Computed example of a mutant assay.
Amino acid sequence: MKEHVKETFNLLAHIYEHNVDTTSLYNIEYERPSMLKQLPEDLTNKKVLDAGCAAGWYTDQLIKRGANVVATDISQEMVAATKRRVGSFAEVVCLDLETTAMPFESNSFDIIVSSLTLHYVKEWTQTFREFQRILKPKGVLLFSVHHPFMDIKMSKNKDYFSTELIIDKWEKAGKEIEVPFYRRPIHSILNETMHHFTIEHVMEPQPTINFKLQAEENYEKLMKNPHFLIIRAINKDE
């Protein structure tokens, strides 16, 4: 599975770097506005981990807000794309979020941002344990994932309460690309988070008016069928 994810996002890196930031309404007019509202405009002197940076859009936004940023991705091609985007303004490393020990000191980050990444991780326990370790006391974990309401529609067995491997198919640049991810029920998402953190806010984002102006039919679908879930949580460690 991990190798499949790496291969998939190595293939998608060029598309993310050159197209997603300007053409994907689901990113630019749906998920990202809601995520950014949960972050301070001024991140000066804050150390932030962009966990699952893809081609570095969030990395760049965090830098522009004054943060000291470390960005990671499992895909070497995504790491290369992020380095091209931000140059020496962030530390960018190739990292598997399911690793037993992240190469960061304990209590070293003020914020961890993880955008549409954790549904590619099968087991969250070790990942969240490491997130908790490297976050400062009262540090913030902000992450977005697929909404279970959307994912269950792609399930073959329709067993809502299971954690299930789904193979989605994306049409990108005239090609059909298989994208594997894990579907999980909402109680699993919330309980795993609460085991390590205190949940402060749960959001089911809504598309912007700009989304509606450009794709009204899809806008109406999203207003009735949420695609993403956003959680802001605080580190329990004192």
Rank of each mutant, 00 (worst) to 15 (best):
E41W: 03
E41M: 04
D42N: 15
T44C: 02
K46T: 08
K46W: 13
V48R: 05
V48T: 04
L49K: 00
L49N: 08
D50Q: 08
D50S: 10
A51F: 07
A51C: 10
G52I: 10
G52L: 11
G52A: 05
C53G: 13
G56H: 06
W57E: 14
W57L: 14
W57I: 15
Y58H: 14
T59P: 10
T59C: 13
D60S: 14
D60L: 09
Q61N: 01
Q61M: 06
Q61K: 15
L62P: 02
R65N: 09
R65M: 02
G66P: 15
A67H: 01
V69I: 12
V69P: 00
V69K: 01
V70D: 00
V70C: 05
A71F: 01
T72Q: 03
D73N: 08
D73H: 09
D73V: 07
S75C: 08
Q76Y: 11
Q76E: 13
E77R: 14
E77S: 14
M78F: 06
M78E: 10
A80Q: 13
A81K: 14
A81L: 02
A81P: 15
T82H: 03
T82N: 11
T82W: 02
K83R: 15
R84K: 13
R84W: 00
V86E: 07
G87F: 11
F89N: 15
F89T: 14
A90N: 05
E91Q: 14
E91W: 05
C94S: 13
C94M: 11
C94I: 04
L95G: 02
D96K: 14
D96Y: 09
L97K: 00
E98T: 15
A101I: 11
E105W: 00
E105D: 11
S106C: 07
S106G: 01
N107H: 11
N107R: 09
S108N: 03
F109G: 07
D110E: 04
D110I: 08
I111L: 06
I112D: 05
I112E: 09
I112K: 08
S115C: 12
S115E: 05
H119F: 01
H119I: 13
Y120R: 03
V121I: 12
V121D: 11
E123Q: 01
E123W: 00
E123Y: 13
E123R: 13
T125V: 12
T125S: 02
T127Y: 01
F128K: 03
R129L: 14
R129G: 15
F131N: 05
P137W: 00
K138T: 00
G139H: 04
V140M: 05
L141M: 06
L141K: 02
L141N: 07
L141S: 06
L142M: 10
L142W: 10
L142A: 04
S144M: 04
H147N: 03
P148G: 01
P148M: 03
M150V: 05
D151R: 01
D151W: 00
I152P: 12
I152F: 03
S155V: 09
S155G: 11
K156V: 04
N157Y: 06
N157K: 04
N157L: 05
K158N: 02
Y160H: 02
Y160N: 02
F161K: 08
F161H: 06
F161N: 10
S162K: 14
S162Y: 06
T163Y: 06
T163W: 01
T163R: 08
E164P: 13
E164C: 11
